[in-house]
Write a protein that binds this DNA or RNA. Sequence first.
DNA 1: TAGTTGGGTTTTTTT
DNA 2: AACCCAACTA
Length: 823
Amino acid sequence: MSIYDTLNERQKEGVFTTQGPVLLLAGAGSGKTRVLTHRIAYLIDEEHVDPYNILAITFTNKAAGEMRERVEQTVGFGADSIWVATFHSTCVRILRRYADRIGYDNNFVIYDTDDTKSIMKKICKDLQIDTKYLKERTILSAISSCKNENISSTEYAQSAIGDYTKGRISKAYFAYENELRKNNAMDFDDLLVNTVRLFKECPDVLENYQKRFQYIHVDEYQDTNSVQFEMIRLLAAAHHNLCVVGDDDQSIYKFRGANIRNILDFEKHYPEATVIKLEQNYRSTQNILSAANAVIAHNVGRKEKSLWTEAGNGSLVHYRPYDNAYQEAEAIADEIARLVRKDIAAYKECAVLYRTNAQSRMLEERFVVEGIPYKLVGGVNFYARKEIKDLLAYLKTVDNGRDDLAVRRIINVPKRGIGQTSISKVQEYADERGISFYDALCMNEDIPGLGAAAKKIVPFVNMIQVFRSKLSFYKTSDLLKDIIASTNYVELLKEDGEEDAEERIGNIDELISKVTAFEETNPDATLTSFLQEVALVADIDGVDADDDYVLLMTLHAAKGLEFDHVYLAGLEDGLFPSYMSITSDDNMDVEEERRLMYVGMTRARKELTLTCARSRMIRGETQYNDVSRFVREIPVNLMDNRPLKKRGYDDDYSSGSVGESAASFVDRYNEMMKSSNSVDTSARESGYGRSFSSDNSSRNMDTVFDLKKPTVSARRGGDNSLKSIYGIGSGTGTAGGGSALPKVSVKTTPLGKSFSMPGVSKGISSAISAPDYAEGDRVEHVKFGVGTVLKIEKETKDYKVTVSFDGLGTKIMYAGFAKLKKK
DNA sequence: TAGTTGGGTTTTTTT
DNA sequence: AACCCAACTA
């Protein structure tokens, strides 16, 4: 009996096909990690491949660690000489050795998103780019796209001729590259680009690695970008022993440059490739799989596959609509508390997944209130927090004064009375002489116009020098503690009396622990190696499977994980799929969101619960959204509760259903208020609650008007007292008076209606108005272009407009929805 | 120079 | 709502 007997036939094929290119199309939960680890074990144990000749690239450090651990369990020894790492850390390792061959110093620094943003901010200032018109982020993402497609600043400049905006971006691109060069720095994209460049410019280096990496494995291949593709192509060119594993249905990183064509066209790139499909799922129940299959089937151009399982049908997918985000959070928290109380599940078997990080707040609040242990994955990356970045900047400055960004960050932290004016003078001086900011600081006496500020710089420079002199006998943890003590960092934090001081101090303690832990696992740890390690950690990397808490994270962060009980929260059109994807001209954008939905659903082993909220506060405004189209794509027989009716405004809403359209809600609400003599809250509460209550939703939807349950965010905010929420006693009048009647304001979006509640948000206006165009007018549509209005018909909820679009034919649409512009 | 305040902005996801 | 920035004040 060998370890390979437990594999199914397809999996075995993946393990035993060791020669040549292999594409392993591995559906969610089909045991791809098992195949990879067994394959590596097979190579070592049966084919006697030297572990040193094996490369395995994963997506996160966590995945790399797990892979290593599992390989170690499977093969007796030698596992530690296998190269298991992420793309980025692989590149760092290579560049640390050879960066000098392409004009960098081998101890280059890595700039994170924050760093690049402040660089860009400075560049925009220098180039007098109006950041109102062209945002730093826009420029940076343009540059990032270029790098991901291997377009140099010079090449970009060519394509920018005659285009003003592109011209500005091009200028910024040059300046940005210059600045990074000057600081001996690389951004995340550079790590990949420069590795490819190194391989192309230095054939001896490439050959070296080609010889070393005889067997290459790439996990999550669907999320590789063009540069990564190129890097792998180069490495595998000599022997073609390339095994890529992925699932085109789980490609969710387009925004980061991932190119789904890499996996879809693998057989074109490698015509001799063996393609193996893993479709048997070992994770979820059949109902969950069928639901997920049904959703993903709405995408076009995918590699046809359908997951199946030998496990039973299991429970139906639970669909739970709520009236607002507060109730949604409360219900999820309650349910998890119940599961644990009844011993049905442990906390760590539950996870709540959502589209945007902002959604975590309300969930967190409820979890705190109910005393449920939870762990938030993501949000602000630990290493991106201010206090951590400050301390790391000190470490970097001590390590290597060439990182101007780090030095500038801490020159006045804590306050030393060195202001913007002095900093600019020092910078000017440094720029003139082509020296680093830190070196300029050291020459403070020679800098013209500094005056009294020079005296303030001296203690800072001295402190850094003292730290450096201690390096010979200090461990990094000693240095860190010394920095904290010498700068009085913690005391000053406390004195500031900021609300989150305690949390920040906790983070500092955690940083000390992390340094100490690093020193324990790496006996030859240095300050430099610690800083390198830290630059590439992802949030998910910190999750430890042994601790018992509920995990809260974005759908993106959940990829590769699985839980018995999964809650997908915020399933509303406009939130998920996102507004941006819905309004995009490119259908592929919604498809990417659908893949994200598929990823989320297939995280669940036993129970999958889909929740949505009818109203939700987004960026300070209460929005009302329809149920996500993805929920509607699930066959109703697979759910224990169905979203009512179809989306749109011609619904039969008389049932007062949860699935009622937003427009009908507005009408009915205003109708109700008209017939009501007073705006007394109980009347509102009952009116709303009753008309909306639905027999099949587990909770009533009355919170907007429920005095006992104000929304959490409302409680936190500035003037969101209960009084102002309900408009009581604030001068607007509490009784009678038609003019004081609250009305619901409607904002028409391409999505449908989003409207705000008086008191909850601002805005008072009337419901839907007639379109500003008439029959025969020429109008323009965002997507369909220009056309002629053939007919306008008034309907109960909206105006139905028939338009003949030039070259596209006739379309019937609703005025509120279509947002037609008169030409 | 430092702290405060008011105004404007916010693409959703991240190595 | 939360964040960032410019302008203003001490």
